[in-house]
């Protein structure tokens, strides 16, 4: 199957559930999702065996935007579909997708500890990467995190 066909298929699956769909390049489809429609979107891709979850990226959009964003990247052949969920800086919450894709837990643990995003109903609440004595409430990948070495 060609990349364009795969993207078209993903478009049909996500259209009813996404807030907005854009194709930033010929091999990409970005779907803006609300936290509530995220699992439905993931379920649709999963049920139609559309590719695999390549990873989950957590972003801090910076003080001007004031929001966090979580990107769920799915790859199928040369095509990349990204489900994008924007979240408020205060009390960000997303549902877990690990009930659909069990291997997502590891990526969800990462965005929890690195960006302080609360992943609701995540089966493992423990730390994955950060040390045991890491202080609570310090999320290193947030732009306002005070870390040594930043003054460079």
């Amino acid at each position: 199957m060609q990349t364009a066909e795969r993207l078209q298929q993903a478009r049909e699956l996500l259209e009813p559930r996404a807030l907005e769909l854009v194709e930033p390049s010929t091999d990409r489809l970005d779907a803006e999702m609300s936290p509530d429609s995220l699992t439905a979107g993931v379920q649709a891709l999963h049920d139609h065996r559309w590719g695999y979850l390549s990873t989950i990226t957590g972003l801090d959009l910076g003080p001007d935007d004031g929001r966090l964003e979580v990107l769920y990247h799915f790859c199928s052949g040369g095509a990349i579909v990204t489900l994008r969920v924007k979240l408020p800086h205060e009390d960000p919450k997303v549902p877990t997708i690990s009930k659909i894709i069990p291997s997502a837990v590891i990526f969800e643990q990462e965005i929890e500890e690195m960006l302080g995003i609360d992943v609701l109903d995540i089966p493992i609440k423990e730390r994955l990467f950060l040390p045991d004595d890491w202080p609570d409430g310090v999320y290193p990948l947030r732009k306002d995190a005070q870390l040594e070495g930043d003054n460079e």
Partner: peptide, 8 residues
Amino acid sequence: DRMVAINR
């Protein structure tokens, strides 16, 4: 794994 040193 990819340590952040933290200022305490």
